[in-house]
Design a protein around this nucleic acid. Structure first.
Lengths: 143, 143
DNA sequence: ATGTATGCAAAACATTTGCACCTGG
DNA sequence: CCAGGTGCAAATGTTTTGCATACAT
């Protein structure tokens, strides 16, 4: 149950937090902006403030529950942390995001960091391209 | 001569543009924020506005003269485009940026994009870690 | 109860834009 | 001369913060 995730993160179990977790959970494979989360909750009849969405997302990030990505464009997108590390490929037309993992790349990264004398903590890899989906068309907002 | 770079980019040769190009050129291996460029030019006695710095950087980017990166943290950093593609490794303590290129990684990226049905346009890869420089200490601003 | 969370409005940032004036070719 | 460039101030878009109230435990 999600309440437990919150508990173990040292966060009180409150309506906004549960609703946000639920939304992120039900938005499989989706990467949402704070604004999108806010709008969807409002449309669903919830009472929540945009500031709270940002605050909670930051807390979730600190707790390792979500990851914040800065793809192109001003807004950050948030993704529920479900399982192992992966990188992203983003369609520059429709904005769709897919995930992938490639051990060969990971290995090369570790080798490169070591060669350059860095203790590797983290990395971001994002590919940008055009996907081949039939319905792929320029679209911006989430409903 | 830098004037020529501007000319062939369809941009008039003006003071601000030349000064900015110079600064970027003399800042070898450096990745500067718009604000940092602005401050350095002001300190150097130049008369320039922050808005102009942003405008010119955008034009430079469109002309392929500079690249804009969104490393962690709010501000974008700009780097003079000198030669071939490369990726970055950033020290999370001192902010130092090093560049690298790895053909194996590039190759895997192309393969991944193809497998997922994307026509690859671009990518960003940034490693974050701690460098082993003697003087590596938390520092934020450029002088 | 009591320390945390929340909503709202205002603040803080980074970046962009409108506009009157200046300048390179 | 004149289209394009510039500085300044104001606008924008996103994220953060202050504060009084509301809620979880």
């Amino acid at each position: 149950m999600e309440s437990q995730d919150l508990r173990s993160a040292g966060l009180k179990v409150t309506g906004p937090r549960l609703k946000m977790l639920e939304l992120l959970e039900n938005t499989h494979g989706r990467h949402l902006t704070a604004e999108a989360i806010y709008r969807q909750l409002i449309e669903a009849g919830e009472e929540i403030g945009l500031a709270t969405v940002y605050r909670v997302l930051t807390q979730f990030e600190a707790a390792g529950l979500v990851t914040r990505h800065h793809f192109e464009g001003g807004q950050a997108v948030f993704e529920l942390e479900r399982g192992p590390h992966h990188d992203h490929i983003v369609c520059i037309r429709c904005g769709r995001v897919e995930e992938f993992y490639d051990e060969a790349i990971e290995k090369r990264q570790r080798a490169i960091a070591e060669k350059l004398g860095f203790k590797l903590h983290d990395h971001t890899l994002t590919l940008y391209g055009e996907c081949s989906r039939p319905g792929c068309q320029r679209q911006n907002s989430e409903s």
